[in-house]
């Protein structure tokens, strides 16, 4: 009896809740940590970016219209999905990053726990970031955190899963829709999480995951005027150039290398707008 031949997987973009090839038909070769061919993944084009932003814009309104409690449950559901496929995720992290098996499993466990952490934040941000403001006058005045809208994320290049989780989930948790560009050389863990999001009750388009080149996709995202914010976490040397492009439409920009403590709200605050409401008080 011969050994069973495995079923090879075609890696597609996660766009508007569906799995699609790049509109351009282009792919690029992804190698494993040892430099061996691993897969041909879709190379997102400028038009894929356009489609992702359109999907994200539409989805953001739906996502934000859910109750915060509901968003929390959906994000938790994503953790459940990831938990069920943690071995698969660990294999990918191992193969992509070259970690040993226990280290890869730990890395995935931390990432999943981080999703759970974000799930818990969804319905607490308003209390922690917002509040009542004691103004001098007959007004009730309160501030609430509201999402920036559509957030582009250039995910970290080295940490293919754990950093992806932080970059994508922080804006998502605050009510944004996300277009994430996975690590260029190690995109599969991010694409896998994107796949899981499709079965996690996350409305299609809320999390779009692209694979492709930081240079071209990054520039398309940074210059797209309907993107409200961009996280340059994994932009490396290109961060300066991309942040200049982002300034054209007054985007919120999160520069790479911004350190933060694990329990900090800094990342959550990056793509949040403080909306303040005044209402008169009187008989």
């Amino acid at each position: 009896m011969s050994e069973r031949v495995g079923v090879a997987k075609t890696y597609k973009l996660v766009l508007n809740g569906a799995f699609v090839r790049s509109e351009s038909g282009r792919v690029y070769e992804v190698l494993d940590h040892a430099g061996r061919f691993w897969a041909n993944v879709a190379e997102a084009s400028r038009k894929d970016v356009r489609d992702a932003v359109v999907a994200a814009r539409a989805a953001q309104a739906r996502w934000w219209s859910l109750s915060a409690y509901n968003r929390a449950q959906v994000i938790f559901r994503l953790a459940e999905m990831a938990e069920a496929r943690r071995d698969e995720l660990a294999e990918h992290v191992q193969r992509a990053e070259g970690r040993d098996a226990p280290a890869a499993r730990e890395c995935v466990a931390r990432g999943i726990d981080r999703i759970v952490w974000y799930a818990g934040w969804a319905d607490k941000l308003a209390q922690v970031l917002g509040g009542a403001n004691a103004v001098a006058g007959p007004f009730f005045n309160f501030s609430l955190p509201t999402p920036s809208g559509v957030v582009a994320v250039i995910c970290a290049q080295d940490s293919s899963f754990e950093a992806f989780v932080d970059a994508a989930l922080a804006p998502l948790c605050a009510g944004n829709a996300v277009v994430a560009l996975a690590s260029e050389a190690r995109p599969t863990p991010g694409l896998l999480l994107g796949e899981m999001s499709v079965t996690s009750d996350l409305p299609g388009g809320v999390l779009n995951v692209l694979s492709g080149r930081v240079g071209s996709v990054g520039a398309s995202l940074a210059s797209h005027e309907d993107v409200d914010g961009i996280d340059l976490d994994g932009a490396g040397d290109r961060a300066g150039e991309l942040s200049v492009l982002a300034a054209g439409s007054i985007k919120r920009v999160r520069q790479p290398g911004t350190d933060f403590a694990a329990n900090s709200t800094a990342r959550l605050r990056s793509f949040v707008e403080t909306a303040t409401v005044w209402h008169t008080v009187g008989r």
């Binding site: 403001n133 004691a134 103004v135 001098a136 006058g137 007004f139 005045n141 501030s143 509201t146 920036s148 809208g149 409200d228 007054i250 707008e273 403080t274 909306a275 303040t276 005044w278």
Partner: peptide, 12 residues
């Protein structure tokens, strides 16, 4: 209306 205790600033 403006007040030092009230955050002010824009979106978009």
């Amino acid at each position: 209306r403006f007040d030092p205790a009230s955050p002010f600033g824009g979106v978009k």
